[in-house]
Nucleic acid binder design. Structure first.
Lengths: 188, 188
DNA sequence: TATATATTCGACACATGTGTCAAATTAATA
DNA sequence: TATTAATTTGACACATGTGTCGAATATATA
């Protein structure tokens, strides 16, 4: 019994992601959120206590889905695994930008937000461990040039995800192109 | 005669740049700005009429300085010119992020902001022309691989500027490393 | 149809940011 | 030192966002 909810928590978090990416953490607020949802602003407080909790929950949700995909990768072929991993990152290319605002969230007034951000940090570390493991293997297998420091190669790899897809090809082929460029270089 | 100004327009714009990068365009406001300046918030209105004009003037100032450096490049050696250009972009690596907020500025209430943003757009186009010219030459000179579309190579080059300098080496050497990686690739 | 209850709604008190203006302050010069 | 003018200041009216709460609404079930 009782009344039907006019939107789900999932819809709320999806919308939050879009709006935080569009306006930045500081530019995001609950009135803005409510203007893109059916119903009154005060209804949002049925789902979360404040902006901090909403954004923290949103970040946790996004990074958790990436962790799930990344941990399912077959790592038996190192370079193949790196290419697949890049594909996952490119698919969620806004992840980095979104998480960049995590430090702005004031957690002093919300235990829930604090807990969610701990999960985010944990997940971030897990992804870093995987990336480091793959790169160390690639180096041991003599797959990487040695005249450029490993952190630079890793930074360059990771930064690929931000490359705007100007020629607008589907994500899988796009990530393959980026990987090729990163591996072989631009020079003929 | 009269009283001395307590800060210069330059100081105001430098601070604006820092704060817009830190908080995003939406998170930036005049009270925040005044809290990082000596004196009262209302003093700011002696310099500019509102937030829109301040940020537009700030963007114009930054991109103008980049244009000056970029137009002084000796383009006789194409690949050398590209490396120097990358150095300039890396030096002002926040430029891209800063200008990304340009479309958010509401120019309907300020002719001054509108004029400044026109200059920004013009400068942006000028930089793009130079980059395209250099890349077309590099391609004609058979300096670039042909199995990857030119826009992808350009996008990859331009995206290098966002690579975080984790090993914290001085900018000139850093940009050289990035250029090497972009040219030769990560693979041995 | 009547009842129980989950959900929504809108108004209220509060907090923060904006733009203006007359009065106060400061510094050069007569 | 007195005058003049550029600059600063703080208060005011207004605008926008926040979190809460009692009343109103909708829906499953008896």
């Amino acid at each position: 019994m009782g009344r039907k909810q006019s939107y789900t928590e999932s819809e709320l978090l999806d919308l939050t992601k879009r709006l935080v990416l569009e306006h930045g953490y500081d530019g995001f607020h609950l009135k803005l959120l409510s203007q893109h949802l059916p119903g009154a602003r005060s209804t949002i407080y049925q789902y979360y206590a404040n902006k901090e909790e909403i954004v923290a929950a949103c970040m946790k949700r996004v990074i958790t889905s990436v962790i799930e995909k990344a941990s399912a990768i077959d790592e038996s072929d190192t370079m193949q695994a790196l290419q697949v991993l890049l594909g996952i990152y490119v698919e969620e290319s806004k992840l980095h930008q979104l998480l960049g605002d995590a430090h702005k969230i004031n957690t002093t007034n919300s235990a829930a937000a604090s807990r969610d951000l701990d999960v985010v940090e944990q997940a971030h570390a897990t992804l870093k461990v995987q990336l480091t493991r793959l790169f160390q293997r690639a180096q041991q297998d003599k797959n990487l040039r040695e005249d450029i420091p490993l952190p630079v190669l890793i930074g360059g790899f990771f930064n690929l995800i931000n490359t705007p897809n100007m020629i607008n090809i589907p994500t899988p082929e796009w990530s393959k192109l980026l990987f090729q460029m990163w591996m072989g270089g631009a020079q003929q």
